[in-house]
Nucleic acid binder design. Structure first.
Lengths: 343, 343
DNA sequence: ATTAGCACTCTCACGGGTAGAGTGCTAATC
DNA sequence: GATTAGCACTCTACCCGTGAGAGTGCTAAT
């Protein structure tokens, strides 16, 4: 258990270290903050905090650095979540209302804003629709035997696919087919389409096969894209000046590893989650570099409509309060956008 | 002017250095290749090559390294362009035929394949349509006063935008409007739409304003996206083990700088172009790190239909032959795809 | 013209030596 | 009994010198 004074010192050490990236010495602490006791006292408290596993010494004659446990305590008990300034909030909202060009743009923009605001790597996935329905289906003739299938799913989600027809078809013929299919399959889910025993022409069969394929892909989230932004911030951090660490980190953030690095889907629904260093649920798969990083994940979206996740990845020495509140705020904004436009 | 033997030695030095990334010594050259003369002779030839600016010595007691001029000579006169093995060609084509899901996927895939094949950074832009026409226009009701505008442009290029209607409209009403607009503006370019003096209802006016906006954006290429892939390859190269250089490079490749780093548009039409180090046309804007890199740019597409560019960025010490031929081959494949599906 | 031999130069890796920072301990103080 | 000043101790970071090794340029012989 920690006394109040120990708690206070821990808090100071964390903020000091987060800001300066240098092990915190007892004297420096007394000098820069009003602790009310001498360096010697701070030293003995530090020793106790170290004994309990909250702090660590890189070497005998160095200051202290928070451990994972230290950061965890800080996040859980000490840190007070800040609110973004009115100004910052305005700026963010303003940027979203500048562009109104669909989910992908939002997602991208969100990643961009997030990275810039928290000065770390940001990852944002595009919203994911759970079990999509056919809203509308359109066939556009491109060439005699080539047509474009346009499929509008729930919430205006758009998919397209080029079809190579076995027989040439005019636009008028295609329109007729599209009308029939719309009537038959409007508002159906994949299952319903598959289960349907409607008698179809060969052409209709071909089209619906493609439709099923597309919808399945959407349902499995195979088409979700994650935008990553802000590499430069994290790589500029002192903990990664070593080029080996840099490479390790880049491997973590390689597109193919991203889903392992950041367990987005699992955590997205539970508000904002903080993962500190080796707390990572799938550490072995994520990679060694993960031990030195923290991840903040937040979910956004409207239940049953569409949802996605925002995440920030940075060194363990991270401005937790600021990052958490930014993630939370951005998640709220994204949720509003989703609700407002798609509900 | 260079004698034949000097030329030969230059060639050997370039390939040796590209392979081993270590300054090439006279002895090593004699040992690993059959030059037919002694190290001493090689040395004097090296001295001459250095005097003429083709080679450089990092320091007095080191081997030689090719200069920009040396590489340029190599690319221009010595290198013989290889053909990709049948196998490699097959593999690439196979991957493209695995997925048939529109330009974006292709672009992404091309970047991925390119990066992997040449083991450097690859950048690929999506195909850019020059002066697009309206192919088809569709309105889908989402809510009472919200509709989705789906705009099909040439070559099946798809754009969408959500509209907030001033008056609630049913799907039927919207379909009527869409049909009228299609009749009036089918096959029009932006200019024609703007110039048109057709009398429109307020709703129609609103829709067409949006259409004009979207088409302008497409024409200006503002929606073109570039995919970047393969950071890990280039950052693993020995010339970038130093963390400062790494950061410099990452700044080059930051999304906002990419268009300055790689003059894609300017060079795209001229087949495959090789830019070595400081030859870069806009060196000052690109950044200092560019001095140590080479870029290979190739254009793809069908004239008057759609076109884009592929590029590879790597250290000056690059397998030029292999890279150039890969870029060329991929450009051909992409061009075929564009022609085949969109013409 | 080519080559063997050799002296010269420069880098890189290793080791010792020192300044400085920060600690832990002890004894004095409140 | 908690706090603090004082001090010895430890460890790092940096500087410097030194020596081995690599590779060259030059010179004299072929």
């Amino acid at each position: 258990m920690l006394t109040e004074r120990q708690t206070h010192i821990l808090e100071l050490i964390v903020s000091e270290y987060v800001e300066r990236a240098v092990p915190v010495a007892s004297q420096a602490l007394g000098r820069n903050h009003q602790v009310g006791v001498s360096a010697a006292t701070i030293r003995s408290e530090m020793a106790e905090l170290e004994a309990q596993g909250y702090l660590n010494q890189p070497h005998t004659s160095a200051g202290r650095v928070p451990t994972e446990k230290g950061y965890r305590f800080y996040v859980e008990w000490l840190m007070q979540e800040e609110t973004l300034s009115q100004e910052a909030q305005q700026t963010i909202r303003h940027q979203f209302h500048q562009i109104e060009r669909g989910q992908e743009r939002w997602t991208h923009l969100a990643a961009s804003i997030l990275a810039q605001t928290v000065e770390n790597v940001a990852v944002v996935t595009s919203p994911h629709v759970d079990a999509c329905h056919i809203k509308h289906l359109e066939l556009v003739s491109l060439q005699d035997s080539t047509a474009l299938l346009v499929l509008v799913l729930d919430q205006g989600r758009l998919q397209q696919q080029i079809l190579r027809l076995e027989q040439p078809q005019t636009q008028d013929e295609l329109s007729v087919v599209a009308a029939r299919l719309n009537q038959r399959f409007g508002r159906s889910t994949v299952r319903e389409v598959i289960a349907s025993e409607a008698v179809l022409t060969e052409l209709e069969r071909q089209i619906m096969d493609t439709v099923v394929e597309i919808m399945s892909a959407v349902d499995e989230g195979g088409l979700d894209e994650a935008y990553l932004e802000g590499l430069r911030h994290i790589l500029g951090q002192p903990e990664f000046t070593d080029s080996d660490r840099m490479l390790g980190l880049l491997e973590l953030l390689d597109e193919h590893n991203l889903t392992r690095t950041i367990p987005l889907r699992a955590l997205a629904r539970e508000g904002v989650t903080v993962i500190i260093g080796a707390e990572h649920p799938r550490l072995a798969e994520a990679g060694e570099a993960m031990r030195e990083c923290s991840v903040i994940v937040g979910g956004y979206g409207a239940p049953g409509v569409a949802s996605g996740a925002l995440a920030v990845l940075g060194p363990m020495r991270m401005r937790y309060s600021h990052t958490i509140s930014t993630v939370r705020y951005l998640a709220d904004v994204m949720s509003e956008l989703i609700t407002e436009y798609y509900e």
